[in-house]
């Protein structure tokens, strides 16, 4: 739990999110376009980080499903910014050694004739360090 306490503080500092502002209305989750693909949803990221229950999030595929569309940020009535928290948790995983989700070797299989460069650079920025 001590470890989690440190991680919790680090996540809050890097994301700038204050989960105490959350009033548990669930609008973030209501508006999330990636809901169906996510095991843990935006409101759960907020409450689980707040309570220090972070391990399940670190292991969850949900980290890689967030579209960073920022709908939860703009529509949150309390200004909580859940997407920034999701990003902070994801970074804490991919910044660790061996944490890269995507490697250069994967690129050929992703390419098709029309894939814009933007897709690849975005994916690398989101999934790898």
């Amino acid at each position: 739990m001590n470890n989690n306490k440190y991680l919790r503080e680090e996540l809050l500092r890097q994301s700038g999110v204050n989960p105490k502002k959350c009033m548990k209305c669930g609008k973030c989750t209501a508006t999330c376009p990636a809901f169906d693909e996510m095991e843990y949803h935006p409101h759960q990221f907020v409450s689980m980080v707040e309570s220090g229950d972070i391990e399940p999030l670190l292991k969850s595929e949900s980290l890689y499903k967030c579209l960073s569309c920022f709908a939860c940020i703009d529509r949150c009535p309390r200004g909580v910014e859940p997407a920034k928290l999701v990003e902070a948790v994801r970074l804490s995983v991919i910044r660790k050694q061996g944490g890269n989700r995507l490697s250069a070797d994967d690129v050929p299989s992703l390419l098709d004739e029309d894939v814009p460069q933007q897709l690849l650079v975005s994916a690398f920025r989101k999934y790898s360090k």
Partner: peptide
């Protein structure tokens, strides 16, 4: 209408 049902953890 797209909404959340927090008790069921559903959209």
């Amino acid at each position: 209408v797209q909404a959340s049902d927090l008790l069921a953890n559903k959209q």
